[in-house]
Write a protein that binds this DNA or RNA. Sequence first.
DNA 1: TCAACAATAT
DNA 2: TATATTGTTG
Length: 636
Amino acid sequence: MSIALSEVQGELWAETTYYNLCHRVSLCQSMEVETLINRSISILVVDDDVVCLSIVAMILKKCKYQVVTVKHPMDALSILRIKGGSFDLVVVDVHMPDMNGFELQQVITNEFELPVVLMSADDKEGTILKGLDGGAAFFLVKPISVDDLRDLWQYALLQKKKGKRVVLEEIDCLEKSSNCNKKSLHEVGESVSSINENCYQHIKKEKSKRKSARTQRNADKDNSGNSAAPFKKAKVVWTNSLHNKFLEAIRDIGFDKAVPKKILDQMKVPGLTRENVASHLQKYRIFLERVSDACCRIQAADTSLGMLSQEKFGLQKQFSENTTNPRSLIHTANNGSSSFRTQQTRQTIPSGYEQAQLFLNEDNLGNITHSNENPLYKANQLPSTMKAKNYQTGSSAYEDISSQLMNGTTSTQVRRMLSGNPANRLSGRNLLALGTNGITMHATLNGNLNFLRDGFADDQCGTNFTQNNDADEASTLFTGHMNVIGKSQHDSEQCLAQEASSSDGFDGEKQCSAILSDHIDEETYMQLPSFVNGVCRGQEVDAMLDPVCNFSEFHNTNATQQSRGIGDLSVSFVNQGNVLPHQQQDHIGHTEPAEDGMSQLHNVFSYPTEQCKDEEFLELVLASSPYEDDQNPDGL
DNA sequence: TCAACAATAT
DNA sequence: TATATTGTTG
């Protein structure tokens, strides 16, 4: 019972009809029905030969399909990336310049999970087999006839079925909509709402009399067998693109003012109900809370690290206060002997939806190629267990990573996604996502949080934020192994990577400072006087924190917030109820109005990002990640 | 059995 | 509208 209420108009009708057809062969044979199905199916045709292209298009249109034609393979991909969900099938000519049909088919299959029908004048067995072996749904030999194309809808619908996306068992309602309503089914299909209305109206009427729909459904179940099949309302599947529309709507309205009805209006998705939105909003808020929780822990880590450095500079009292506070230091249940992986005490953001496909940040769109180096392609080469179970999620190369997190993309998946191609630069949002997904946390949320920084005083460290993000950038990696990787202020090559001996996370008895001093020589240490808060004098520091560190909660106070630099905004902005960076006084004495933590968090997940320029840094991070192998891809 | 989802009830 | 509860699903 799930229907993707994505951008695919008429999809519901098609899916429903599929079942209709399956169950009612006689209907299936009806030409009228077939035509109606076709009208709901969109086909993208790709052929560099304009004549052939127009002929195929003409035939398809004659068969009442919705047709879009494209001459260049890359254009086809662009269209699919933008409106991937709008198509049900792609017809591709094999012989094309730039990218041949086989290659294009591979990309489309992997990236969009759309059925691809190849066509070619080349009828050699080898060619045909190559196409079919490669995953093409069908191979058409030119010249193409009407008969060849008439039944293409079957491939589209089969794919839908394969994707488990389908299912609307309410056949009767469909018949009602088609019988009672003599308007074309395409028109019906144009709006999910109209379908829903048509399908559900008679139910709703009755429902109003009912005390509970559920009760009624149970009653229906009991009565089943002698009357119409019990009505089941189609589930809305929140695809990434739908979710993004949702995010956009919230952004436009403003997080605080965004309520289901307004969001619904803003989204302008036919068929979507206020209840759908409300339900999703509820889930989204829960999601943000989880992120917030996770970030609180990271904040604790950051703060502890900060205290660490302050201790070095004579603020031992402060530090010891924190260390003696059972809630403020790191506690590791198992001392030292167990492996990182067995520790597993971290709480990652629980996966929400089913496992999602790997996606790229929209920043990377330009980097996508059709070659096997395409990270998307690579991603799709993951073991099947890591692949999406839910194909609706598989079409969005440019989706917001937050939706992937909500969709349960695993930490390793995200990491892979980012590491698959060095060209995939990290955005702050990605990094936050990584953090919330239990990998690493980019404390400064490089680039992404410029809008947060803007309100800051920059006389002390704010300017530093934007000055040095190149080779001189210092980084720290703070993982469960207590790795500290960084580049000294003056020697970009110097790396402080050390690993705490047999330390899985922190030893409760071992103070952070001790761990640090164990592994960082004095000179280097002194070069990092203020890396604590993610801000190093004259340069930016990326503090990578892993929630796995098991930091206990640290309740940030106004004082500690103010004592900290700008660098910790990544972890404080989500800290509801705590003082936010915006609240910090700037050098002039103004106090920025507080912004709701959730709202800020939402912003992070919905605003466009800039790219992090430090690919080298990413390499370091990945090289040092405790999630080394893929045996346990989820790290769980 | 459980967790997560979306729908539904309050 | 926000939140709690429920049914469904994998």
